[in-house]
C-alpha cells in the first residue's frame, strides 16, 4: 500500500515534468496549428546548452538558465521567422516534414558536437536530498520540478486568459487573416510564441537533465511524451495538458512496477486506450 502511494506520488511528480515538456507543443498546436516533430530534440538541445554554460562559467544548472533561457528565446524567434513561418498554415504535411528534417539535423548536430555519450547536469546534493512524509519518501528535486511546473503553467494560463499577449494568441488561433486586420502581425507573433516556447523548453530541460542522463538521440522519446500529454488533455486546453502529462507519468511508473522494461509501454497503452474512448481528449476545449 505504501509502495503504491509512493509510486503514485512519484508518478505525479514525473508527470508534472512531462506536462512541462508538453506545454510548448500545446501552444504550437493550439496557436499555430502546427506540430513540431523536433520539439523533443529542442529539449535535448536545451539540456546540452545548460551543460556547456555550466562548464564555461563553473556555475550550477539553475544559474545557467540566466543565459540559456534568453539564448533559447532567440533561437526560437530565429527558427520561426527564418524557417517555420514558410510552412505555417499549410496544413499537416509541410510543417510535419520540415520539422522531421529539422529533428534529423539537430540529432546529428548534437552527436557531432557532443559525441554519442550520455551526460547529465550535476546539481550537487539537491539531487540526492529528500524527506519522509508519513513513511513515504519524497525527493527534493522531483518536488521542486513539480512546483516549477505548476508555477509555469499558472503563469502561462494567466497570460493566455488575461493579457494582451493571450488575446492576440487566441485571435490568431481563431482566424489569422482577421487578426491582421486588428493589427496583429501573425508572422512576428508566431516568432514571439516560438521564442516563448523555447524559453519554457529551457526550464524543462534543466529539470530533465538533472533527473535523467541524456544523449543526442533522447529527443524523439521526449516528443512522444509531450505529444501524449497534449492530446490526452485535449487541444487548446492548458491545464488539460498538465493533467495529461500527470496521467502518462503515473501510468509509466506503475507500468515499471509490473515489469521494469515496460514503463513507457504502459504510458503509450494508457494514451491509446484513453484516445479510443475519447478521441478529442479527456477535456474538450473550453471556450471562454
Amino acid at each position: 500500500m505504501l509502495i503504491a502511494l509512493e509510486t503514485l506520488i512519484g508518478g505525479l511528480m514525473l508527470g508534472a515534468l512531462y506536462a512541462l515538456f508538453g506545454l510548448g507543443l500545446s501552444l504550437s498546436l493550439g496557436v499555430m496549428r502546427m506540430i513540431n516533430i523536433a520539439h523533443g530534440d529542442l529539449i535535448v538541445l536545451g539540456a546540452y546548452l545548460c551543460s556547456v554554460v555550466m562548464q564555461m562559467f563553473g556555475i550550477g544548472p539553475f544559474l545557467s538558465l540566466m543565459l540559456v533561457v534568453p539564448l533559447m528565446f532567440v533561437i526560437g524567434m530565429l527558427l520561426q521567422s527564418l524557417l517555420l513561418n514558410r510552412v505555417v498554415g499549410q496544413g499537416t504535411l509541410s510543417p510535419l516534414l520540415l520539422t522531421f528534417g529539422l529533428s534529423i539535423v539537430l540529432q546529428n548536430f548534437l552527436q557531432e558536437t557532443f559525441s554519442a555519450d550520455t551526460r547529465s547536469l550535476q546539481a550537487g546534493d539537491i539531487a540526492l536530498r529528500g524527506f519522509d512524509l508519513g513513511g513515504v519518501s519524497i525527493g527534493l528535486l522531483p518536488l521542486l520540478s513539480t512546483v516549477v511546473s505548476v508555477i509555469i503553467f499558472a503563469g502561462t494560463s494567466w497570460l493566455i486568459n488575461g493579457s494582451h499577449l493571450g488575446r492576440q494568441a487566441r485571435a490568431v488561433a481563431d482566424d489569422p487573416a482577421t487578426a491582421r486586420l486588428v493589427g496583429v502581425d501573425d508572422r512576428n507573433f508566431y516568432a514571439l510564441i516560438t521564442g516563448f516556447i523555447l524559453a519554457v523548453i529551457a526550464m524543462a530541460a534543466v529539470l530533465y537533465g538533472i533527473r535523467t542522463p541524456f544523449a543526442p538521440t533522447s529527443g524523439p522519446e521526449r516528443l512522444l511524451y509531450s505529444f501524449e500529454a497534449v492530446v490526452l488533455g485535449g487541444l487548446g486546453n492548458i491545464w488539460g495538458t498538465f493533467i495529461g502529462g500527470v496521467v502518462i507519468g503515473v501510468a509509466q511508473l506503475f507500468g515499471a512496477k509490473i515489469s521494469s522494461g515496460l514503463g513507457p509501454f504502459f504510458g503509450h497503452l494508457v494514451f491509446l486506450v484513453a484516445l479510443l474512448a475519447r478521441p478529442e481528449g479527456l477535456f474538450r476545449r473550453i471556450q471562454r
Binding site: 488575446r167 487566441r170 482566424d175 486588428v182 493589427g183 471556450q287 471562454r288
Partner: peptide, 24 residues
Amino acid sequence: VPEGRRLFGSLTVLENLQLAARNG
C-alpha cells in the same frame, strides 16, 4: 470591417475590443 463580421469566437466581446484598442 470584413465581410461576415469575423469576430474572434475565443474572445469575449470586451476582449475583441480590447485587442483592437491596444493595437490601434
